[in-house]
Amino acid sequence: DDWEIHFNNITIRLHGVSEEQIEELKELIKNGAHEEELRKWAEEVNR
């Protein structure tokens, strides 16, 4: 699925990401992940 997530003036566009991966991302954000951590997560997902 395609997703677009907005938070802290950042837009993250995701393509072909599962519901499970979105839940992981929500947890990262909820736990106060920094932009660098989110980038690493996105790189892993996009492999």
Results as ranks from 00 to 15, higher is better:
Gln21Asp: 07
Ile12Pro: 02
Ala33Cys: 09
Lys30Pro: 00
His15Glu: 05
His6Val: 13
Glu35Trp: 13
Leu28Arg: 02
Glu36Leu: 07
Asn46Met: 15
Ala33Arg: 01
Thr11Cys: 05
Glu36Ala: 10
Ile10Pro: 01
Glu27Trp: 15
Asn9Trp: 15
Glu44Met: 11
Asp2Tyr: 15
Arg47Pro: 11
Leu38Val: 10
Glu23Cys: 08
Glu27Cys: 13
Ile10Phe: 11
Glu35His: 06
Arg47Leu: 15
Gln21Tyr: 08
His6Asn: 07
Glu24Phe: 11
Arg13Leu: 07
Asp1Leu: 15
Asp1Gly: 13
Leu28Trp: 04
Ile22Lys: 08
Glu37Gln: 10
Glu4Phe: 13
Asn9Ser: 11
Arg39Pro: 01
Val45Asp: 01
Ile10Ser: 06
Leu28Ile: 05
Val17Ala: 13
Gly32Tyr: 02
Glu19Trp: 13
His15Phe: 15
Glu27Met: 15
Lys26Arg: 12
Arg47Gln: 15
Glu4Ile: 14
Gly32Cys: 03
Arg13Thr: 05
Asp2Leu: 13
Asn8Leu: 11
Ile12Tyr: 04
Leu14His: 01
Glu24Thr: 07
Ser18Ala: 05
Glu4Val: 14
Glu27His: 09
Gln21Thr: 08
Glu44Ile: 08
Glu4Gly: 03
Asp2Asn: 12
Lys30Gly: 03
Arg39Ile: 13
Ile29Glu: 00
Leu14Trp: 03
Thr11Pro: 01
Lys40Arg: 14
Glu35Ser: 06
Thr11Met: 08
Glu23Asn: 12
Gln21Asn: 04
Ser18Phe: 03
Asn46Pro: 03
His6Ala: 08
Glu27Leu: 15
Ile5Phe: 14
Leu38Pro: 00
His34Tyr: 05
Asp1Ser: 14
Asn31Glu: 04
Ile29Thr: 01
Trp41Ile: 02
Glu36Lys: 06
Ile22Cys: 06
Asn8Gln: 11
Leu28Thr: 00
Glu24Pro: 01
Leu14Asp: 00
Arg13Ser: 08
Glu27Ser: 14
Glu35Val: 10
Ile10Val: 08
Ile22Tyr: 06
Glu36Tyr: 13
Ile10Arg: 06
Asn9Gln: 08
Asp2Ile: 15
Glu43Trp: 11
Ile22Trp: 07
Ala42Arg: 03
Gln21Val: 11
Ile10Ala: 04
Leu28Tyr: 04
Lys40Phe: 05
Glu35Tyr: 12
Asn46Ile: 14
Lys26Thr: 05
Glu44Asp: 08
Glu20Trp: 14
Glu43Gln: 08
Asp1Pro: 10
Glu36Arg: 08
Glu43Ile: 08
Ile12Asn: 03
His6Thr: 14
Asn8Lys: 13
Asn46Phe: 15
Val45Gly: 01
Gly16Asp: 08
Glu36Val: 06
Asp2Trp: 14
His15Leu: 10
Glu19Val: 13
Lys30Val: 05
Thr11Trp: 09
Glu43Gly: 04
Glu23Ser: 08
Ile12Glu: 02
Ala33Val: 08
Glu4Pro: 01
Arg13Asn: 08
Glu27Gly: 09
Asn8His: 09
Glu35Asn: 05
His15Pro: 04
Arg13Gly: 04
Lys40Tyr: 04
Trp3Thr: 04
Phe7Asp: 01
Ile22Gln: 03
Asn8Met: 13
Asn31Pro: 00
Leu28Pro: 00
Phe7Val: 11
Asn9Arg: 11
Trp41Phe: 05
Asn46Leu: 15
Ala33Trp: 03
Thr11Asn: 06
Lys40Asp: 04
Phe7His: 03
Trp41Asp: 00
His34Asn: 15
Ile10Met: 12
Phe7Ala: 03
Glu35Ala: 09
Lys40Asn: 06
Ile10Glu: 04
Gln21Pro: 00
Val17Gly: 02
Ile5Ser: 05
Glu27Arg: 15
Ile29Lys: 01
Trp3His: 05
Arg47Tyr: 12
Lys40Val: 04
Trp3Asn: 03
Ile29Gly: 00
Glu19Asp: 09
Gly16Ser: 11
Phe7Met: 07
Val45Lys: 08
His34Ala: 13
Glu36Ser: 12
Ala42Gly: 03
Arg39Phe: 12
Asn31Ala: 12
Glu43Thr: 07
His15Asn: 07
Lys30Cys: 12
Lys26Ile: 11
Leu14Glu: 00
Val45Met: 09
Leu14Asn: 01
Asn46Lys: 10
Glu37Ile: 07
Ser18Thr: 12
Ala42Asp: 02
Asp1Val: 15
Glu19Phe: 14
Glu43Asn: 07
Ile5Pro: 02
Trp41Glu: 00
Glu24Met: 09
Glu35Lys: 04
Val17Phe: 10
Gly32Phe: 04
Ala42Thr: 04
Ile22Leu: 10
Arg39Cys: 09
Ala33Lys: 02
Gly16Gln: 12
Ala33Asn: 02
Leu14Thr: 02
Ser18Asp: 03
Leu25Arg: 00
Glu44Thr: 07
Gly32His: 06
Glu43Phe: 10
Trp3Pro: 02
Leu25Lys: 00
Glu24Asp: 04
Ser18Ile: 02
Leu38Ala: 00
Val45Ser: 02
Leu38Tyr: 03
Ile22Gly: 02
Ala33Ser: 04
Gly16Asn: 14
Ile22Arg: 05
Glu4Cys: 12
Ile12Val: 05
